[in-house]
Design a protein around this nucleic acid. Structure first.
Lengths: 209, 209
DNA sequence: ATGCAAATTGAGCATTCGCTCAATAAATTT
DNA sequence: AAATTTATTGAGCGAATGCTCAATTTGCAT
């Protein structure tokens, strides 16, 4: 049906694109159908002809975050390099903007069916990327993790938690510190203390006890 | 003004109580002024006489979570015991219910002034409790943390992240595993490997690499 | 009793927002 | 060219929701 095999975007596709743009601009909650149709330059009826709003919104969100995830874990082939990239880009200003959208999605997912499905899919995808990365590094002997899958889960969780803290500014935390914390956590997971992965700042310049 | 010094709750207080109840029942987003006035047995006008909805909602939320935090870190005097309690209750069914409200609040805080203030205050309070707990344990020599404040931040972040994962069920995670991960993370932070704190399950029964 | 202020009510206003639907235009088929 | 299907429009419906406001009741001081 109207399979625009490889043409310029159909009006339908334009609606998805416009939704992505609006979501990026104003957030998931504040994104309204009227903004989208206006942006896409179509009548309000067309959106409802092709989609229901919750579906379109979830579709656009998933499309956006699939791209983001692929960017975050751009595979260079070298796990060491990839992990380092993961650490250094973990708390970018840009990533923090995405994190706001992530939080909104996780919240919406509780009451919005399509959003729930999309969120589960994308978040699993993101988690698997990190897991595979750590596995690969273990296989290549770059670092020594007793249980790389468990480490991936913990590291991912800490990443989520730190990102959340960054959103509503915490005095003791800024992007640089957050990155240091994440690297430190990884270093602690490594059995071989000479592993080069967590070499960054040895945590924050805190007072010890 | 109507300072009911120590009487049965005034209608005003009843409104706050009712708001807490409704928030617990249906969530922050789904809580509506009409539910609250109905629950409190007052007219819709009274709510607006005393409050604006965003204020009342934030007030009730803060009251609820201040209580929750105090419960979570019930000081027995013994840091070892308190930390253990923190770990064992971290992912209770009940706590997960609260976590949903926490996420909603963190989301609302982005666009809701009163909610933002309340969230910052309560979350700082919660973080400080954990920090003080770890500090106390260090002082008493119960465990050996090079930088207890940094550990508190990381542990809190991981707690947040794991709780988030538990909300939209992840195949490899359940409350018991989440608790084990948190304990494991703490164990890794301890310099003295013989510290008794992280003695629980030695992480999940994952395959190593 | 009287009067004044505070408490309380609830019908309804104003706004927001997704979506319907009858009408029209465009594309496609016959 | 006619017919039929598909694409497209936008005014407006209907539901939800915080809040206003004129009216009423209650409490308290005089």
């Amino acid at each position: 049906m109207t399979a625009s095999t490889e043409q310029e975007p159909s009006r339908r596709d334009k609606l998805v694109e416009a939704t992505v743009a609006i979501i990026l601009e104003v957030g998931l909650r504040a994104a309204k159908t009227r903004f989208v149709t206006e942006r896409a330059g179509v009548g309000t009826g067309l959106l409802n002809h092709y989609f229901r709003w919750p579906e379109l919104r979830a579709l656009a969100w998933a499309q956006l975050f699939t791209a983001v995830t692929q960017d975050q874990f751009a595979g260079s082939g070298d796990p060491q390099e990839d992990l380092d990239r993961y650490f250094s880009t973990a708390f970018t200003q840009e990533v923090r903007r995405y994190w706001q959208l992530w939080i909104e999605a996780s919240d919406l997912a509780a009451s919005d069916g399509p959003m729930n499905a999309a969120f589960r899919r994308v978040s699993a995808q993101s988690r698997n990327r990190l897991r595979d990365l750590l596995r690969a590094g273990c296989v290549q002997g770059l670092w020594d993790l007793p249980a790389p899958d468990a480490t991936a889960l913990r590291l991912g969780a800490m990443h989520d938690g730190l990102a959340g803290l960054l959103l509503s500014p915490v005095a003791e935390l800024d992007p640089a510190r957050a990155e240091a914390h994440l690297r430190k956590a990884f270093a602690l997971e490594c059995q071989n203390p000479r592993s080069r992965a967590g070499q960054g700042t040895p945590s924050v310049p805190d007072q010890s006890c």
